[in-house]
Design a binder for these strands. Structure first.
Lengths: 183, 183
DNA sequence: GTCTATACCTTGATAGAC
DNA sequence: GTCTATCAAGGTATAGAC
């Protein structure tokens, strides 16, 4: 992996573990055994770095969509939830949850990128739920987008709260989401 | 209101709007037209301030419990959710959501206080759900604590995501939580 | 209780050599 | 592409006068 990608990966992990305003370029430079000036070579500002990180997640989302495109709706949702589960390991939460929290401390440009990632995620989930509902896999009585919102917010909140309470809580909630859908 | 309480109130608002690691003593001192040294007179460290803020919320929770103690379970839950709604005004999220996010950047002492506040909240909600279920108001088929977890995490996530998407989303989700319970 | 003054550190960022 | 050197700004925190 080249240095640029390593910086993005470390920044990503730091944001999701400690938050955007709680990590510095020196956290990354120490880990990579380079100087902070070298990071500025790749990313002139911290804002540029976080944008690159969001864009990486946009690409990952597209790859995920592609990868599960042939599966049935139930499997799609299970895979979707499992991404958030792996993501959460070692206390890291999803990029969406972490960055939403620091939303008001971002420049307009970062806010826009974050909105795009959020909407792309929400749109895919809405479409997948609709598909599963129409095919008789899922059962719920509300707008598809509303159900999608509830599932996403439930996951984001669960990631957050699991830090304080107990990691097992997270699994309980994921189980409940699936059971509620296919009941 | 005395200076100490003003500092706590401003710190509370700043944490819930921008996060613990994104505000400084000078944000508070400017607002109060005092010097940063004066804040240190009341709170020697930033850690001491956040602990005082958590303890204020512990007291607020006790007052809330007392205030709704005579109401029926449905009203209790509605009041509980409405607290989170008011809380969210102007983009401020709940103290639980905001501090959970910065959990790994806190000292052990702050983490402990936050755990206490979280558990107290969760315990009250669990008991209230159980009461309402036993009295036939609420209908769900899982452990009471699990249902309490789902409700809390749903609210925390909704507060978070509403910043990025649309405030109206938050109301939609609250509605859905109530409807799901009493359906 | 609030101030001035200041110490000390970390931050994000830049200039220019290699 | 990475380094040294350096910067200005802002952070938490403290000492001591008033």
């Amino acid at each position: 992996m080249n240095t640029r990608d390593k910086i993005i990966l470390l920044g990503d992990n730091l944001i999701r573990k400690r938050g955007y305003n709680a990590f510095s370029f020196s956290d990354i430079s120490k880990e990579l055994n380079i100087k902070n000036a070298s990071i500025h070579y790749y990313f002139p500002t911290k804002t540029a770095l976080v944008i690159a990180i969001i864009q990486k997640h946009l690409i990952l989302l597209e790859k995920f969509k592609e990868k599960v495109s042939e599966k049935d709706s139930v499997q799609k949702i299970i895979k979707f939830l499992s991404v958030y589960s792996i993501t959460k390991s070692e206390g890291r939460i999803s990029i969406l949850g972490s960055l939403s929290n620091d939303y008001f401390t971002f420049t307009a440009e970062v806010q826009t990128e974050l909105k795009i990632l959020t909407n792309n995620t929400l749109n895919w989930l809405t479409d997948t739920l609709k598909e599963g509902r129409q095919q008789g896999f899922f059962h719920y009585d509300m707008e598809d987008r509303k159900k999608a919102l509830i599932i996403i917010t439930n996951i984001l909140g669960a990631e957050q709260l699991s830090r304080v309470t107990d990691n097992y809580d997270f699994h309980k909630i994921k189980e409940a989401i699936i059971n509620d859908l296919i009941k």
